[in-house]
């Protein structure tokens, strides 16, 4: 019987998938689709013992944190949303130089009295006092938001979950401000929002990451070592 394979999770769709494919190809790591797996499974040519799984970027982050895969490529923002301080569960092995996105706090541009987190704190407190309810922050990054706001000393707010198009929440009236990713800021601008001066929570990019909580055998460490060497990274001792 064959030993359990090392599992590597990579994005299954979108711009990130294209960039990962190109990066792997340039490093001489060629992926071969597994027959009958409908594009959700692959192997690495010349490196047996590695099972490649194609998952959504957010699934990869939770699989890394949960120990369901050994290695993965996904956005640091998604990894930290699942494990804010990495918590000894995930190790970031190599920033890949693409997939750049900042997780930021953005408020309506018309809030001309608010340009810092301290201003937002005042605005939140005044809002809670006047409206008898908390100012709403729309985000899919609840963990990152809570930590950042706690650090900034802001407590008079509430998070409303957002599945997509977070930047439209203030216009739609479902939130007053947002925490979301931005690359150029143009989407925020188009929606009448501005990033706070000290409102950058995380400067994120795609990361090659390792799950510390996954079950690792010596054989797996061996396979991982060869793969990582090609990708210009090493396995932590």
């Amino acid at each position: 019987m064959m030993a359990d394979p090392l599992t590597l999770a990579i994005p299954s769709k979108g711009r990130l998938k294209e960039q990962v494919d190109a990066h792997f190809a340039a490093a001489g790591v060629a992926l071969k689709q597994t027959a009958g797996a409908r594009g959700y499974r692959a192997t690495v040519e010349g490196l047996p013992g590695i099972d490649v799984m194609l998952l959504s970027a957010s699934e990869i982050a939770s699989a890394l944190v949960g120990g369901d895969v050994h290695l993965g490529v996904t956005g640091e923002d998604l990894i930290r949303e699942n494990a804010p301080e990495l918590d000894g569960r995930v190790a970031l092995l190599k920033p890949l130089g693409f997939g750049f996105a900042d997780v930021v706090v953005a408020v309506p541009r018309a809030w001309i009295d608010v340009s810092t987190m301290a201003d937002l704190d005042d605005a939140c407190a005044a809002f809670a006092h006047r409206h008898r309810r908390r100012l709403r922050i729309a985000t899919k990054y609840a963990q990152l938001t809570r930590r950042f706001f706690a650090h900034a000393g802001i407590s008079d707010y509430r998070i409303v979950g957002s599945a997509g198009a977070t930047e439209g929440a203030p216009t739609a009236g479902t939130a007053e401000a947002i925490v979301d990713i931005t690359t150029t800021g143009s989407t925020l601008k188009a929606n009448g929002l501005k990033v706070l001066d000290d409102g950058v929570i995380l400067r994120s990019q795609a990361q090659l990451a390792m799950s510390i909580t996954a079950d690792w055998t010596e054989a797996m460490r061996g396979s991982a070592g060869v793969l990582l060497k090609r990708l210009g990274a090493t396995l932590p001792a």
Binding site: P108, A110, W111, I112, A123, F127, T171, E176, A177, G192
Partner: peptide, 16 residues
């Protein structure tokens, strides 16, 4: 006509 959320114009004026 940039959005304000539920925060009113008056709140902004008062704070400033």
């Amino acid at each position: 006509d940039a959005p304000l959320g539920m925060r009113t114009r008056e709140e902004i004026v008062e704070r400033l």
